[in-house]
Amino acid sequence: MSELWKRHRNWLAPLLFIAPGALLFGTIIIASSFESVWISFFDWDGVGPKTWAGLANYRELFADPQFYVSLKNNVIWLVMFMAAPPLGLALALLVNQQVAGMRFLKSLFFIPLVLATVTVGVVFGWVYDPNYGLLALIFNLFGATAPALLADEHAVTFAVVVAALWPQIAFCMVLFLAGLNNLSPDIIGAGRVDGARGWNMLWHVVLPQLRQVGFIALAVTVVGALRSFDMIAVMTSGGPFGSSEVLAYQMYEQSIFSYRFGYGAAIATVLFAIMIVFITWYLRMMVRLEKETR
């Protein structure tokens, strides 16, 4: 027995350690993904029998104007969310100064991260309220009437993304703060000896060391933008008339409210196909970064 173990432990031990995680990941993520794709070929209300529909769900989806509205909104989310890493970095550099009271300021910037996304959505919903909201108060101060951002089909997505950016920027800030704490003092010292300071120091000495963290911040932001859902559900329920829906929300609405699980699965599959592009990019970058640091 022990002879057997000795001979095989090189591969048995890792296998045993990986097995529980792999099993969970396999059933909850991998198997469900495949099932989703499979369901997308059916007409199914979630309870009754499934009927084979072939590519009908996809054909309908690509002819559905709502799909393109959702897709466009996904792009808006993605582009606007790209502001989070640089803003987070700027904030991190700001609050990383050794000035009295900075700890307090740091914790203020940290607050949105502690709040649940739903809370942030509700709070911003109030801010945007055209009658009683903070925004309305500010506009009234200047004698203007506040726009009803959440009732305007063109403004609504931007208003929701701004609300979602608040915690996202804080998240990036925390990542960069951690990165700033891990800067190598040797390299900084060497830079100082060579006369680097101010902008040069930041650009040539500090930022290169933050590459890994920056990459993670970017990846997390991309994923965050694509899976955006809770904020929309809380603030607008996709409205007015679907103009703030994204693919994830449309999938939820079709499956849960309209009881069209096949159609919802087709949307999920398209979203998955978009995500896989970013996941592939992420994995390749990860591998490359790991090789560099080795």
């Binding site: 009732a151 089909e153 007015p240 008339f241 679907g242 609405e253 409210f257 309209s258 009881y259």
Partner: peptide, 17 residues
């Protein structure tokens, strides 16, 4: 039908705007 209701009420909301 719930599916019809979902689209219908969304349409009425749009009509009102």
């Amino acid at each position: 039908d719930p599916d019809m209701a979902q689209d219908g009420m969304k349409g009425f909301q749009e009509f009102m705007l």
